[in-house]
């Protein structure tokens, strides 16, 4: 793998008046050039917090990225970057699109102006060149009549078009990494399919690596190369999309796979529903974070944190069931066969 991003032991805390919320608790992963890695997990599990920490978008003192966290972009230490380098990192190397395009587009500025800003700042184009390039970008993301829509304000566009403008803005400087936080959650399935097709096309054209944050397993199955399953600020399982869908080992991953109705299931059958809630992230956690909700929970699970077991070059899981002395249990797949 030609590695573009390396993250080791990333820890992010929010300091609130109730105490320190340890939202990201030692997350490590790598990202290869042109690869799509999906983050999946329940809301509040730390996906966005992780994604924003990579670009150092969090500001002290209320949010703290712990000092022994490692984030390396193309071999360069992001934690040590000065203000100027960080600005160029965010403009040229890594960019992010957010769930709700309305909150991240400036409502008082035409979409063309907003795309041009980055082009002038980061790629040193003059006004006329930047406008030309902005129109090209809008054409690339399939905005109809780009020569005209370049002068539209965000509210004059539909939700799907705004999301595509966001993508055009994020890609204007041809970043090596695109972080997409729930990019299609607010969209209809038909528009979602169009936006995902577009991302796929751009990925092939520009060899952009993508971090895709989503809770939609359908989107992951159709789009990601690898998946990282997160729970309570930790990665509990990681693998290729095939490994996560067809050979998952972690009970939490099973629960996620199980709670989506397959189009093939019987109507009105009871769906599998995970009970309870994730642990409070203010409290310390020195055992398996999933223990309270896990139907396979054993004594050891409540006492010690499971280590990450390597199952293949790509597939790793943190669960005591992988211990050689653990009992054999009936997996999600065994049950589904019945």
């Amino acid at each position: 793998m030609d590695r573009i991003l390396n993250v080791e032991n990333l820890q992010v805390s929010f300091h609130t008046y109730a105490g320190e919320v340890r939202a990201v608790r030692g997350v490590s992963f790598e990202l290869g050039r042109g690869e799509t890695l999906a983050f999946v997990g329940e809301s509040g599990c730390g996906k966005t917090a992780t994604a924003k920490a990579i670009m150092r978008l969090w500001k002290p003192p209320f949010v703290e990225i712990k000092s022994d966290s490692v984030v390396e972009y193309n071999g360069e230490d992001v934690m040590k970057m000065d203000k100027k380098r960080l600005q160029s990192l965010r403009g040229n190397d890594i960019s992010m699109i957010f769930q709700d395009p309305m909150t991240s587009l400036n409502p008082t500025m035409t979409v063309g102006k907003q795309i041009m800003e980055g082009l002038q700042l980061h790629r040193g184009l003059n006004k006329a060149q930047a406008r030309e390039e902005a129109i090209n970008m809008l054409r690339m993301v399939k905005i109809p009549v780009p020569e005209k829509n370049v002068d539209s304000y965000p509210h004059q566009l539909s939700g799907g078009m705004r999301q595509r403008v966001m993508i055009a803005m994020a890609l204007a400087c041809q970043p090596s990494i695109l972080i997409a936080d729930e990019p299609t959650t607010a969209l209809d399935v038909t528009i979602q399919a169009q936006v995902l097709d577009l991302l796929q096309e751009l990925k092939t054209q520009l060899n952009t690596a993508i971090i895709l944050v989503t809770h939609d397993l359908g989107v992951i199955a159709n789009f990601a190369d690898r998946v990282q399953v997160m729970y309570a600020g930790q990665v509990v399982e990681r693998g290729t999309t095939k490994e996560i869908f067809n050979e998952a080992k972690h009970p939490y991953t099973w629960a996620l796979l199980n709670s989506v109705p397959a189009l093939a299931t019987e109507n009105k059958q009871e769906l599998y529903a995970l009970k309870g809630t994730p642990p409070d992230l203010i409290l310390p956690l020195n055992h398996c974070p999933f223990a309270a909700r896990c139907e396979y929970c054993m004594g050891i699970c409540r006492e010690q944190m499971p280590e990450e077991t390597t199952l293949s070059g790509t597939h790793k899981v943190s669960c005591w069931l992988e211990h050689p002395n653990a009992p054999k249990v009936e997996s999600f797949y065994d049950r589904r066969k019945k």
């Binding site: 038909t190 528009i191 399919a193 995902l196 397993l217 199955a221 999309t241 996560i244 869908f245």
Partner: peptide, 26 residues
């Protein structure tokens, strides 16, 4: 037909199944 084919199915059965017919426009 277009609406149903746009549903991303949460099952992974190889690259081939990822190719689908698309509804253009809004």
């Amino acid at each position: 037909q277009a609406l149903i084919s746009a549903i991303p199915v949460a099952d992974f059965d190889g690259e081939e199944s990822r190719k689908k017919e698309r509804l253009e426009g809004e």
